[in-house]
């Protein structure tokens, strides 16, 4: 967490050569430098992925780090999970997460597409490069920074409130209003990520054959008809793919963004899965309970990704990964 990652859209291994003639000893001897090169990465992945993944066993325990540890704590089966579904705060986190996903699907998802169309339509190459450079930039800012910047603009002591007061109006504080929180975070997400998100659509736009446009123009199709009949069908595969990916990622709405603003707007509006895991597990100290919430999210997320990928294949797209 923290380090920027994105998801590559296609991960496949190339065809394998027939290597069965060699014994594993011979292969081991032949590939020992490769294995040695892999070792540092393997150790890190073992320590910070595999061991924690298996450590989720504490979700099924009444875990106590001091008396029992992972091996000695009493096993209580699915009790933690049963408790989760009676916990109003957990249900609220689930509801918030899903509403934020749904809201952003409508109000964030189309923005990079529209931005890409706008950028693509700028005729001057220099101007286009300049605007692209500007809109990609906030993607490299941290969430702390973005929240700080928004606070200076829209907070109680921010620029907007200051300008309103100068003109004799009442100031506003958008940063602590829980009713409009979903709007606030969507605006932040647009400001930070929409420019970067446009890249993939720009790439798709550049692969549309210009002859199609010319032929359509010769046939009398005006600007908007060409957009409708050539550009949008050209973008369709990317749009469908990213839409499916977003659905597969429905439980991930971002984490630092919510952690940072939780105290300002209260947990009612800002509690999402990840913040719930953190507060219920690490803050109140019930580690097994928090781990159960985290494991629930991880497993449902895994199922969603697999389902989304299957859907992508069914629609004839390539999906996140494909069988090699």
């Amino acid at each position: 967490m923290g380090v920027m990652t994105a998801r590559p859209i296609n991960v496949e291994s190339p065809p394998q050569r027939d290597e069965h003639k060699l014994t594993w000893r011979a292969k081991l001897r032949r590939d020992r430098s490769l294995l040695l090169m892999n070792l540092p990465m393997l150790l890190l992945v073992l320590a910070f992925w595999w061991v924690p993944a298996l450590g989720n066993i504490i979700a099924f325990q009444d875990y106590n780090p001091y008396t029992g540890g992972v091996l000695g704590s009493p096993v209580i089966g699915f009790t933690n999970f049963a408790l989760l579904f009676q916990d109003p705060q957990f249900l609220r986190a689930m509801l918030n997460t899903l509403s934020i996903t749904a809201f952003q699907l409508v109000f964030y998802f189309p923005v990079p597409i529209m931005l890409a169309l706008l950028l693509h339509s700028i005729v001057s190459a220099r101007l286009r490069a300049f605007v692209q450079g500007v809109v990609y930039m906030p993607y490299f800012f941290s969430w702390v920074l973005v929240v700080a910047i928004f606070q200076q603009m829209f907070g109680g002591a921010g620029l907007l409130a200051q300008l309103l007061r100068e003109r004799g109006h009442e100031g506003v504080d958008w940063m602590t209003n829980s009713d409009t929180f979903i709007l606030l975070i969507t605006t932040q997400t647009i400001w930070k990520d929409a420019g970067w998100g446009a890249i993939i659509f720009l790439a798709a736009l550049s692969t549309i054959d210009p002859n199609l446009y010319e032929a359509a123009a010769v046939d009398g199709a005006r600007r908007w008809r060409r957009l409708w009949h050539i550009t949008l069908p050209g973008l369709r595969p990317v749009i469908v793919l990213l839409l499916i990916l977003r659905l597969g990622d429905a439980l991930n709405v971002g984490f630092e963004q919510f952690m940072l603003q939780r105290s300002a707007v209260g947990s009612g509006a800002s509690e999402v899965f990840d913040t719930f895991v953190y507060w219920s597990g690490l803050r109140t100290g019930d580690l097994g309970y928090g781990a159960a919430a985290g494991l629930f999210k991880g497993l449902v997320g895994l199922l969603l990704i697999l389902a989304a990928n299957r859907m992508a294949h069914a629609l004839g797209e390539r999906g996140v990964y494909s069988r090699s």
Binding site: M1, R7, V11, M41, V45, A47, F48, W49, V51, P52, A53, G55, N56, I58, P65, D274, V277, Y278, G281, L282, L287, G290, A291, G294, L295, K297, G298, L299, G301, L302, I305, L306, V320, Y321
Partner: peptide, 17 residues
């Protein structure tokens, strides 16, 4: 490595590690 794309072990186990 590819598994890391589809499953995150969770904040708490990583913290304990």
């Amino acid at each position: 490595i590819l598994l890391m794309f589809v499953f995150f072990p969770g904040i708490i186990p990583v913290y304990l590690m």
